[in-house]
Design a protein around this nucleic acid. Structure first.
Length: 484
RNA sequence: GCUGGCGUAGCUCAGUUGGUUAGAGCACCAGAUUGUGGAUCUGGGGGUCGUAGGUUCAAAUCCUACCGCCAGUACCA
């Protein structure tokens, strides 16, 4: 190696992202909103480590290692980064038998998946889960659905759709169509693509296969025409109100014994949602949804933003009555759902639903006389003690214009100006930067009546008050109504 | 993973059949204005042309490989 300096290129790993302050402010607000809803339902906080033993995450005999970030640790143990929060929850429930059941917890934490990044799909992303463990009643499922509905509304999203179904419906469909249960996984995977590729492509994939637009061959599942006809019959049922969908289904599956359970469960949930006046438009019974995870055993849920369907499911979950069994040897029922915070955030950003604020400060104390820095420090401390977020300008350059420009860029609403004049008179100048900014444009054209108005406003935009009045003046400006 | 497209300034892009010293807009910095944000004007800094190799008198331009991004598709416990 030579002594020449080698610059390290600053760059990110594929699928990983930085969140700069403006985005972080918005993201943290979003997280706080979600947490508030979950706590309103009485869910309890939990955290677990990012790393687990690989076998904890994957169980025995499962081969799918593609999506997992795994490695060997210094103790030569086979470990991995968690890929969701549900499996660690199951581990916790099994590991702490003293936890009172039902255990209802929320958890917000990053998870990692090593698959190909897509819009709103990252390799490291934040999940925000809520789960009820130890409840077999479908009341728990209804509460999860309500929680999803309330959360999306609390986030200010108007156009969303929560859809739910039941794994048992699809199992009954297999019976109805005379398809062996072993093919369930393959069939569900194809059905899941209905909205994306359409009915014709689906029936091709179920039978002989097809060639997609890129020229790739997709092998068929080899189902009989009769079976596919039955599936089509199922898919052709009209969408609409929950109770109508349910009625159609029980009619179609009248001769399928296994369907009784699914009908009972969904009946309970639909009745409950009706009695809670949760609108059909936003929480719909949609029998075609499958969801990828194998561990779901009952009701399944997912939510999309109807204005950004390309982001896919932003909030999904279901009942997984068999998962805790992996660690305990006996079944403990559980149901939950998970928000993909980063995916939802990306979708909301695209829809313009995210309000980016670059600063946390409400007031910038500018520095005119660096020699009197102690006075500036004191002023900032006083404001902070009063609960006002205050930044003291610490930049090297001292021009006032510079400092105001800084405040402007960070959208800090108030500046305090304190120079030799003010010191001499024991005063401070307090400036309303938002009002001031709106005057900047008017200044040059102002004339006549407009000019009078301008003069009135400019007197409000910047006032000189006795030092003892500084706090009251800042508070008055911060309380002024602002256009959203 | 597969197929295709694209990589030129912080950002968006132009750059002729290969031909002098690679350009523009926006952004940034400074000054006009040494105590006031915007606009304007003037000036300024910024580029291994994704990386490495090859063809050529000559490569941002052509060829090969790799990396990255985008789209589609597959996979998604």
């Amino acid at each position: 190696m030579t002594t020449e300096q080698r610059i390290v290129e600053p760059r990110l790993l594929r699928g990983f992202r930085d969140y700069l302050p403006a985005q972080m402010n918005a993201r943290q607000k979003m997280i706080a909103t979600i947490r508030q809803v979950y706590e309103r339902y009485g869910f309890l906080p939990l955290d677990t480590p990012a790393q687990e033993y690989r076998v904890t995450l994957m169980g025995y005999g499962e081969e799918n290692t593609k999506q997992i970030f795994g490695f060997i640790n210094p103790e030569e143990e086979d470990v991995a980064l968690r890929f969701d929060l549900t499996v660690p929850l199951a581990r916790v429930v099994a590991q702490y038998p003293d936890l009172p059941l039902p255990f209802r917890r929320y958890q917000v934490a990053p998870v990692w998946r090593a698959d190909k990044p897509d819009p709103g799909r990252f390799r490291e992303f934040l999940q925000f889960d809520l789960d009820s463990v130890g409840v077999s009643s479908n009341a728990a499922d209804v509460e999860i659905l309500c929680g999803m509905y309330d959360t999306l509304r609390a986030l200010g999203i108007e156009h969303f759709k929560v859809r739910f179904s039941d794994r048992k419906v699809l199992n009954s469909l297999l019976d109805f169509a005379g398809i062996p249960r072993e093919m369930a996984h393959g069939v569900f995977r194809v059905l899941d693509k209905l909205e994306k590729v359409g009915l014709e492509n689906i029936s091709a994939e179920l039978t002989t296969g097809r060639t997609d637009v890129s020229g790739d061959k997709i092998p068929g599942l080899g189902l009989s025409a009769a079976a596919v006809d039955r599936i089509k019959e199922f898919l052709a049922m009209p969408r609409g109100k929950r109770k109508d969908v349910l009625a159609d289904m029980s009619k179609l599956f009248a001769r399928v014994p296994s369907a009784v359970e699914a009908v009972t469960e969904l009946q309970f949930m639909c009745d409950a949602l009706d009695s809670l006046a949760i609108p059909d438009e936003q929480v719909a019974l949609d029998l075609s949804i499958a969801r990828g995870l194998d561990y779901y055993t009952g009701p399944v849920f997912e939510a999309i933003l109807t204005d950004a369907p390309e982001f896919g499911s932003v909030f999904g979950g279901g009942r997984y009555d068999g998962l805790v069994e992996r660690f305990l040897g006996r079944k403990i029922p559980a149901v939950g759902a998970s928000i993909g915070v980063d995916r939802l955030f990306a979708a909301m950003q695209k829809l313009g639903l995210v309000h980016l604020v670059p600063s946390t400060a409400q007031v910038l104390v500018t520095v005119m006389e660096p020699a009197r820095m102690h006075d500036y420090l004191k002023l900032a401390r006083m404001l902070r003690a009063e609960g006002i977020n205050t930044e003291l300008y610490l930049g090297e350059e001292s021009g006032l214009g510079k400092q105001l420009q800084y405040a402007n860029r960070l959208q800090i609403p108030v500046a305090i100006i304190l120079g030799s004049d003010e010191f001499a008179a024991n005063e401070v100048t307090v400036k309303d930067l938002l009002l001031g900014a709106s005057l900047q444009d008017r200044k040059k054209n102002a004339k006549g009546k407009e000019r009078d108005e301008y003069l009135v406003l400019s007197r409000k935009a910047q006032v000189k008050v006795a030092a003892s009045e500084c706090l009251a003046c800042v508070r008055e400006i911060l309380s002024r109504p602002r256009p959203a």
